[in-house]
Design a protein around this nucleic acid. Structure first.
Length: 492
RNA sequence: GUCCCCAUCGUCUAGCCUGGCCCAGGACACCGGCCUUUCACGCCGGCGACAGGGGUUCAAAUCCCCUUGGGGACGCCA
């Protein structure tokens, strides 16, 4: 096989959404697996809706995900001349013709067909025009579109699809479709094929919504004298109502940047997305980059659509639970240095980063991240649930106060007393602190659990967290003592 | 409406091509237990599906047909 060349052709009409990211990912995986090239082509021919901000967003999203490309970005709009030239070639060789039917006439025919409950396809009125008639209309200044001349007869347009197998469409079911607008601008159907031919694309991997117009595109390849690529149509991702996930309908939740902002690890999102419509055939679900590239294949892509399982306003899961669980898995198993770096970005974003964490407190920082990461799901938790380890402005959970403070009013006296005891300690080692606390509790005749939990609420702001004695060591004597002395505010 | 595609636990899926090893396996979620003076992790267990109906066959989740449900394509959008 010659070099594998695939492409990802987003249209820059909004942010990069996860469905597109999945398409990019599949293409990328295929290219990497076969030592091929991924070409990034921005399909910006819809000038009305294309924006530079969107282009930037898409590039940023891909970079963040780690989906790198080998060529491009190319811009479809720069190749307009080529598209027009291709249309002219088709015209000259008799594979296309000028159509003078007006939009109104076509709408009327379409409407009539609808009323008659019959199928509508362009009836070929202008196909029969003689060269003289065409010249006459053109000279009269009548606007026209260019239509592709679908071959007549009993033939079929067919192509090989790595997911769907051999796909055939009878030519008689295909109408003479428009390839150039009346204003002279080429249509997607044509541009896309011309670009893929120029970019020497060998495999077109795209959403199943492209399946329907593939037969027409194969006709274009043939008429343009090019070999058609191998196609692979991937199933669509739907929402719970079985509607295609879209920016319009679902908003931010389907945007790649949303996941970046909500503390996702890029690769975790990729790992989740690849599983939507593909599986390796065994029970593996967590893959390193190398493993996934090795395991990936077009043939194992599913044919049925999958559902992106998120429920709006779900208090517990802000996105698909599986995505969250995969992210949490990476969060607690990836190399601690890497996680610490990602967490650092979050802390910097929150303005609670201390440069010392990269210097003299480096080891403390690493150990702290290690201590708390097992119960987190996203990177943002380091600045949320884990805030007390890095800053003084942490919030104390309402339910923690309710359960561990309010029920034990005596703590209002005990906690400051405990602070004094702890302040006297020669060191703040695990055993030293534990012994001091147990002695303290015994002297007062109070159960240590009550004091421990009250203390946890006070010094970490949380109902749950790491073993208290361990956590205290990380917080340090000074901070613990100060926080316990200020515990009075919890009782108001 | 016409054409095409799809159909296994709530969700992602394995198994389907090459029928028996499947009274259907894994993961997430959920429930229970162990661990833990909290929580999480981890471990153990539980709940939970072959859309329905007909065939074919000694045998069907797997093959065939019909029904139903869902999706897509039918633009001078991309």
């Amino acid at each position: 096989m010659s070099e594998v060349r695939v492409r990802f052709p987003p249209s820059p009409t909004g942010y990069l959404h996860i469905g597109s990211a999945r398409t990019a990912l599949y293409n990328w995986l295929f290219a990497r697996k076969h030592g091929g090239k991924l070409i990034l082509r921005i399909e910006d021919t819809d000038i009305e809706r294309s924006t530079q901000a969107s282009i930037d967003g898409i590039l940023d999203g891909m970079k963040w995900l780690g989906i790198d490309w080998d060529e491009g970005p190319y811009y479809q709009s720069q190749f307009k001349d080529e598209h027009v030239a291709a249309a002219n070639k088709l015209l000259e060789e008799g594979n296309a013709y000028k159509c003078f039917c007006t939009k109104e006439e076509l709408d009327a025919k379409r409407e009539a067909a609808r009323v008659a409950k019959s199928d509508y396809g362009y009836d070929g009125t202008c196909r029969a025009l003689t060269p003289d008639e065409v010249a006459e209309k053109e000279n009269a200044g009548l606007p026209y579109v260019v239509r592709f001349k679908v071959p007549e007869g009993d033939g079929v347009a067919s192509f090989e699809d790595s997911v769907y197998g051999k796909v055939e469409k009878p030519l008689r079911d295909l109408e003479d479709f428009v390839i150039v607008r009346s204003d002279g601008s080429p249509l997607y159907m044509l541009s896309n094929v011309v670009d893929d031919i120029r970019d020497r694309i060998t495999h077109v991997i795209r959403g199943a919504d492209g399946l329907g117009n593939t037969p027409r595109q194969t006709l274009l390849y043939h008429a343009l004298g090019a070999k058609q690529p191998i196609f692979a149509h991937m199933p669509l991702t739907l929402d719970h109502q079985k509607a295609k996930i879209s920016k319009r309908k679902h908003g931010e939740i389907v945007a790649v940047h949303f996941y970046k902002e909500h503390g996702f690890i890029p690769w975790a999102l990729c790992n989740f997305l690849v599983l939507l419509g593909w599986s390796p055939g065994d029970d593996t679900e967590i893959f390193s980059r190398e493993e996934l590239i090795e395991a990936f294949s077009l043939e194992r892509i599913n044919r049925s659509n999958s559902i992106f399982n998120y429920k709006k306003d779900d208090p517990k899961f802000f996105t698909d639970p599986k995505a969250l669980s995969i992210n949490a898995h990476y969060l607690r198993t990836m190399d601690i240095e890497v996680i610490a770096e990602m967490a650092a970005e979050v802390l910097k974003g929150e303005g609670i980063w201390d440069e010392a964490y990269a210097g003299e407190k480096r080891q403390w920082y690493l150990d702290t991240v290690e201590l708390i990461r097992t119960r987190f799901h996203t990177l943002t938790d380091f600045a949320g649930a884990g805030r007390a380890y890095f800053a003084e402005d942490y919030e104390v959970e309402e339910r923690a106060i309710k359960k561990n403070i309010a029920k034990h009013p005596d703590l209002e006296k005990y906690l400051p007393q405990l602070a004094d005891k702890l302040a006297e300690l020669p060191d703040f080692e695990h055993d030293t602190v534990e012994e001091a606390l147990r002695t303290f509790c015994e002297a007062l005749g109070v159960k240590s659990g009550i004091v421990i939990n009250g203390m946890r609420t006070c010094v970490t702001g949380r109902l749950a967290g790491p073993s208290m004695f361990e956590a205290l060591g990380f917080l340090g004597q000074d901070r613990v003592v100060a926080r316990l002395r200020g515990s009075g505010k919890l009782f108001s």
